[in-house]
Amino acid sequence: MQAVKKDSLEMLRKEILDLQGLGIRPDSEQVNVPLGEILENMPGGVFPTGAIHEFLSPTLTSAAAATGFIAAIIHSLMQSGKPCVWISTRRMIFPPAIRVFGIEPDRFIFIDTPREKEAFWAIEEALRCESLCAVIGEIATLDFKESRRLQLAVESSRVTGFINRRFPHRITSTACVARWQVQPVNSKATIGLPGLAFPRWKVELLKIRSGRPASWLLEWSGNAFHTVVNENPQQSMLPNLKTGVA
């Protein structure tokens, strides 16, 4: 009886996900994004592709951290060989730097638009194009109506959209599947060694449709994310729990 109940609940959950446009895709379409522990909070335990992810970046440094985080995710999305479009009103990305995250910068197409309105139009057009793997938009404003348009566009084309909102004026609710905030955190070097250690970010999943919001401390080292479990300096000397391979 218990088992039957559980099964039917599972079925219902899947149906709801399908209706929300977050249904489990066939294996060929599924992308394994090595986010480790974070995936447990995602709908169905899979990184939602074909959805809009919104990043709030109130400062330039958090915008840079979010850029790094997005680049690391895109690395696994780009395995399909499709190109990626980067649309921004004020482009600051330094193409040679994203090579560190395992992606070829020459497979990106950068579009610089003078105004937000045109940037939004370009993002929407790009999201409708099924032949792209991801679209990254750097704009400041995104209201509910606009986010709804973007979300509808990706639900038919299955392109993953990342909107990095630099200096967001007004944070209202949006129709995006996920809302993130990435902030840099002090790195912890192995005791006795000078200089910078591996970059660390505090990744906050503020909102996720059909998932659980949470916050993690991530470290990017050896081409993979590592969740930092304990802030104890003795512990961090040991190799961290490896949660994913890029």
Binding site: P83, D106, I109, I111, E118, A126, C129
Partner: peptide, 20 residues
């Protein structure tokens, strides 16, 4: 992709599209 870029170039301008 080429058609998408043409469309964007038509509206925003060809000089705004870059690849590095």
């Amino acid at each position: 992709v080429a058609e998408l870029l043409d469309k964007i170039a038509g509206k925003i301008g060809e000089d705004k599209i870059h690849r590095f």
